[in-house]
Design a protein around this nucleic acid. Sequence first.
RNA 1: GUCCCCAUAGUCUAACGGUUAGGACGCGGCCCUUUCAAGGCUGAAAUACGGGUUCGAUUCCCGUUGGGGGCACCA
Length: 536
Amino acid sequence: MANEEMKVRVRFAPSPTGMLHLGGARTAIYNWAFARSQGGDFILRIEDTDPERSTHENTQIILRALRWLGLEWDEGPEVGGAVGPYFQTERMATYEAALEELKATGAAYPCFCSKERLDACRAQAEKSQGGYAGYDGHCRDMDPEEAAARIAAGEPHVWRLRVPEGHGPIAFDDAVYGAMSFPADVMDDLILVRSDGSPTYNFAVVCDDANMGITHVIRGDDHLSNTPRQILIYEALGLPVPIFAHLPMILGPDGKKLSKRHGATNVEDYRDRGFLADAMVNYLALLGWSLDGETTQIPREMLASEFSLERISKKDAVFDEEKLTWLDGVYMREMSVGEWIGEATPWLAYAHRLGAQALAGVSVVPSPDKDQQKERLASLIAPWQDVPEEEWQELVAEVADRRAWYERIYPLIIERQTTFNELPDKLAFLFWGANVALDEKSVAKVLKKEGGRADEALELCREVLTDGSIPWEAEPLQEACRAKGEAAGLKPKLLFQPLRVAVSGNQVSPPLLESIELLSRSDVLARIDGVLSIMR
RNA sequence: GUCCCCAUAGUCUAACGGUUAGGACGCGGCCCUUUCAAGGCUGAAAUACGGGUUCGAUUCCCGUUGGGGGCACCA
């Protein structure tokens, strides 16, 4: 057992067999937060013992995702540390040493059963007993001399753990689930080392956690049933058992284990859909943990000081993207102009491209279906990926060159966005130049309304916007329009909605006169004239 | 088949024997308003079921039901 004076050391140990998914990200967050709150060390270890599925690219993807989330590790890949290396494939000597120890005490024995025999056993057990109960111990009591001879003859074999007979229940105190107890007699003799000499997961994990001085193992619930097996290995090796904390699963909206069919499960997809890392960390932290049941905004710094294992929930949690989206909006609104431009640049550049692609002159486009629109936004992953590199560089450079202008968009949009993916659609009209793409529904509802005075309203506004004596600024332009509308008996709504549609193409847009201020007089007048011409 | 875990509104959660069962997302209404947001106020919505223990159960115990995970030469 770890005593109180020991420095807390925790680790996140992903296997590089794919992307970093939401569950893994939350496990990493909890490990990180626990280490920070305890003044301990957060270690990253790559479990790449499965050569079939582990790749260098996947490792890089995981490191990148962790860095995006802002979870810096104290020891691990690219950072180093005193108990490295931090890739399991580079620690083979330590597993071999541990195996030698187990061989010497008789706690490990060689097993020559072929994969085929084991498969057959399993198949038969499933047929006759309805389920597999584990390895049947075929080689457990083989004569040591026979075993030695067969090894010497080069016969393929694995090494299994000899689970002690008459071992009482394996008990441990889980920091989340409390007192746990598993009967030892249902435990079969698990494989420690494969026939190719590589360690299995359970064996490598125990060796590494022990050698790296891990004090608390915080990991997914799916490892709960592995824990008694691992404790058996700790015991056989005579090593101290760390404290375990198992985390409940993250489920999809249908209550099933979260998977691709629920949409994005890869954290980098969220980045590429325009979510903020801060919101992601906050949301994920709250999925299975609470500070006090009241607080929903828990920034990283607060997590790093207030996180506690005691308040982790035992219950599986459903991932709710709507709440994440709301929280993302909260963090968005807290951003300064500078931060906003920095993060939003690709989407602003993409909005520019989208707007510049608008058709020439005035056109009417069908209104998107609300649900389809939502789905489209959800599946937009870094939409600029398809843009030719050279063109893209120019677009991005433009945002930097005209930074002052782009900064003026900030107050118009900051309270109207929840993720960056919404920006292109909402801001494209700023890049239309003299052209307009009219939304079909908006035309029907605002411009062609029965008995409406839309054309009259547009004429009035046009007069004001033509008047060079009025400064091209939102406030004076608005007041002048308002006065003119009032004189003509036009309520503000009847006056401004037609103008909104004529300029932005839609009955819903960012603040109208403030947007007009960002456009040139000639473009605005051209849009109004164009719209007027098709109304007649 | 077997081992293990879980159970408060649609969702995330608080209440560790005594509360009008609290907060958040989402949903409805009102206010603000030239649209949409944001903001403010407000409404509907939960202790899975059945037994105990107790003066008193969301809370403790047992059972039922419902969900989840493990039982690989994967991790």
